[in-house]
Simulated scan of single mutants.
Amino acid sequence: MDAGLKRELEEKVHAGERLSREDGIALYETDDLAWLGGLAHEVRTRKNGDVVHFNVNRHLNMTNVCTASCAYCSFQRKPGEKDAYTMRIEEAVRLAQAMRGENLTELHIVNGLHPTLPWRYYPRSLKALKEALPEVSLKAFTATEIHHFETISKLSASEILDELIEAGLESLTGGGAEIFDWEVRQHIVDHATHWEDWSRIHRLAHEKGLKTPATMLYGHIEEPRHRVDHVMRLREMQDETGGFQVFIPLRYQHDFQDMKDGKVRNRLQARTTMASGADALKTFAVSRLMFDNVPHVKAFWVMHGLATTQLALNFGADDMDGSIVEYKITHDADDFGTPDKLTRQDLLDLIREAGFRPIERNTRYETIREYPGPDLELRESPQAMRV
């Protein structure tokens, strides 16, 4: 990137001007990671100060049986396959109740696209979970699952969302987005939910008063221009609805071999590596700079590792997600030693070690509790980061 373009982009960011598609592509092309991080940190600080948000949540996957065979997915199993499972509602409730400790505030529910489970299983599950844990917010189902529910129920997405909201739904999850551009999407996705239906369902959710997350799966066969296009689509939709609370770049997980049956389910593995830490930081920074109308950017530590996540807090991210236990969907795939659980104290320590002030939030990003910031005396000398 030449000095003139660099100055032009700096001036735009300093002035709070909206960046263009061409600007986004240019930012991905820079080799000056420190400069890019500084710009993103300026915007992040303008929006969120010295705060890093986190919550105490648990993930619940009631079935891994799925009709789709997406090229990147290591989670799905076919009916009758070894390790395929489907929970009875009572079983899901018992498991959720066992997760209740440490003042749990959110249950995050994502499943496979089960071919034979009846539609009623899903609202009944939410209702039973809400009755068992009335103080816990239910963040459940991707737009892909809602689209699947339309097929199996013959109801509209609007009717489905109404029933789920009545049963206790407070937010959709952001999954099913991957990369929206068809040039890439046709090679990685094996279900019928693409940009048109994904955006339609989230728009409906926003119209009904739900706030939702948006995600992007990066670091596989896409190019930077596809990442920029993905963010541009979401940014335009956010201009219309204002319903996205947070943007979550999700790093594609490359290395996988199921230790129980030896089967490699990731069909992209032969032609991919995985985004480096530097590429991850660049993606956070460009996303923060481009996505000017969403309040938060989340570094999902399970998919990035702890050290990269701490660094991402200086590259635009202001949220570390939650404590999480047994995150199966990508933890089946990673091979770089990330833990599957962090306690509240772990999160507080990680945030403070990175130089920020922790705030515990709920699903709606309302503050539950503010905590003291980093120890200023410790900041006078270099401190080891967790890996």
Rank of each mutant, 00 (worst) to 15 (best):
M303D: 02
W301R: 04
T338M: 07
V297W: 05
T272S: 11
F284V: 03
R271T: 07
G262V: 02
L268S: 06
S276W: 03
V297Y: 03
L281G: 01
T273D: 12
P249F: 07
T330Y: 12
M290F: 12
A333N: 03
D279N: 06
V325N: 08
D258F: 11
F291T: 04
D334S: 02
G262W: 11
D340H: 13
V294S: 14
H304L: 13
A270W: 10
K260N: 14
A307M: 08
F300K: 00
V286H: 12
D292V: 08
F315T: 03
M274W: 05
T338A: 10
F284T: 01
L311A: 10
K282S: 03
T338R: 06
Q245L: 04
F315S: 08
V325M: 15
M274S: 14
Q269R: 06
T273V: 15
G305H: 12
N314R: 09
A307D: 12
D332R: 11
L306I: 14
N314Y: 07
M320L: 15
R265L: 08
D318F: 11
Q310D: 01
L250V: 10
A333H: 00
F336E: 02
K341V: 15
D321F: 02
K298Y: 14
V294Y: 11
K298S: 11
D258K: 02
P339L: 09
